[in-house]
Simulated scan of single mutants.
Amino acid sequence: MSRKDGPARSPALWRFMVGYFDRYVRRHLNALRLARWGVPACADHAGPVVVYCNHPAWWDAAVVILLAGKLFPARESYAPFDARMLEKYAVFARMGAFAVDLESARGAAQFLKATRRILGAPNRMIWITAQGRFQDVRARPLALRAGVGRLPEIAPDALFVPLALEYAFWEERGGEAFAAFGTPVPGAALLALPRAERLARMEADLTATLDRLSADVISREAGRFAPLASGAKGVGGVYDLWRRLGAVLTGRRFEPAHRQKGDPVP
């Protein structure tokens, strides 16, 4: 793709990095889980898609790349990236990341200019951590950046989809990553609202999605989620070696998971 159309993007590198982060998540987290009610309802949309999400952790970039690669393989994904951090992690520039200066007024103009070019093609989508900084998943209000509310003005044919992200520890050693997509809203419907009301509507939609996801996370019921990636079970080290030896001596099959099927939830 030429610079006139948007940031440089290598499809081959994108596919490689999706595979890399899939392995990375499996190695360092117990699972990436998608709420069964939160499967994205925008596969048939003929125009571009804007996904805006909260920003609770360092893991967000890896999770977003996996969600994009697994759920939207036919679309080209892009994302704004802090200009200073993009210099440090230059590989993301070849994956569709574009630099935005978050510390100056010029950054808003950069963001809108790049986004206008990208959303000019119907098969593209942009993923935006709309809070602009790390913020606890429980913090309210979400305080979305104003630039997010400007996007319907430059892409009224886009579909706007809230995405809730959360992380927690359940029964296993590794952490759990959770995701859920909210109800999509056409850009034209958002454009009909004044800017302040538009941003408030988008924030309310994301807040509602976050609250519903949190209720599922608190339940600790794995059946409420579809696993998109699963890591190795067990504690590891001497503890699992001892458990494995016990299984061999008693003729049982070794199950590394901390909580076995049928065990009561603590």
Rank of each mutant, 00 (worst) to 15 (best):
L119A: 05
L32M: 03
F169D: 04
S230Y: 08
D205R: 10
A114E: 15
R150P: 09
F92W: 05
G223N: 09
P56A: 10
R84A: 07
L191H: 07
F225T: 14
L102D: 11
Y52C: 03
R15Y: 11
T209W: 01
L190F: 05
Y52D: 01
R212L: 13
R36M: 08
N54C: 06
A247L: 08
L213G: 04
M202S: 02
A108W: 00
R106I: 11
L119N: 09
G147V: 11
A229T: 00
A68Y: 15
P122H: 05
V238R: 10
V248N: 01
V91L: 10
K113V: 09
L191E: 10
A226P: 08
P264M: 08
M125R: 10
F16G: 09
A146I: 14
L71Q: 12
R224W: 03
I218N: 05
L13I: 10
V137S: 13
R116T: 12
A143L: 10
L193S: 11
G120N: 11
E103C: 10
P227L: 02
G149H: 04
P7G: 03
F225P: 15
L228Q: 00
R212M: 09
R124I: 04
T207N: 04
M17P: 03
R133K: 14
R243T: 14
L66S: 06
